[in-house]
Amino acid sequence: MQRYIFLRIIQAILALLVISAIVFALARVTGDPVAILLPEDASPKVVEQVRAKWGLDQPIYVQYARYIGNFVQGDFGQAWAYGGVPISELIIRRLPNTIYLASFAWVVSAAIALPIGVLVAVKKDSPFDWAGKVVALLGQSAPSFAIGLLLMWVFAVILGWLPTSGNDAGFKSVLLPGMALGYYNVAAVMRLTRSSMLEVLDTEYVKLARIKGMPERKVIWKHCFRNALIVPFTYMGLIGAVLLTGSVVIETVFVWPGLGDLAIDAIRNRDFPVIQSVVILFATFYIFINLFVDVAYAYLNPRIRYN
């Protein structure tokens, strides 16, 4: 197992290196950042000066090597478009907001999807089953920003219960963006829970428990649900990464000052160091959450062994 984890970490680092190289190149494909950093009528002399100041006059491989060298030392560089503020500062300021939002969205996904998944499995082919499917399908088929705007309209504009946007109203602030972000994943988790539950409900040991007269609630929640949880749990681990990295649109719609919002701003400003840092950070989340899920999966399911 330890060898497996070690190899996966090596794989992850290689993957990050490849990603960083691609991000580095792609960001530059979008054009010259000096065009954004300077006004339209900047003279060629000034363009040269600024290019030299930020090292943009160097060959791209030199720029990349310098960037990676600094990055591994924890120096993400300076944000060109934000007055030269260290990127680590920007990230430290915004990362907690993104984690908070993603965590709440994860809880929303679980809180809605798991009970409904169990319910529709137990009440298979009943009106509950159909209703559950509709609820989940709505989440899956509507883009999260559309759900977000709908929620905003109903709960902030019409009812006035919650703020439309921002993060300065305490827990109330996270409710709408969290629901919008989390609801999107309900369908998949619910379907996985349902199918997993159906599989478990059909097993011999469950039939035996029922024959022995065990109360149905105990059969479902103690014997079925725990065993059926492995598959949705794995998926929800992956969702964690999706929620962390996929909050870009929701953060923009709800003026939530997180990393997604920062990424959008950086792209708009062609702030390469910030784009690179945020994307690599997102990739890191994704890869290491995957790794964590794989390892946790092995612990949860003793039948699985990684060699």
């Binding site: 993957a15 990603i19 494909v29 792209i267 784009i275």
Partner: peptide, 14 residues
């Protein structure tokens, strides 16, 4: 991650 990267990098409005 790469798709995200590409989307981020290529979608930059100027």
């Amino acid at each position: 991650a790469l798709s995200l990267t590409a989307a981020l990098a290529c979608g930059a409005p100027t």
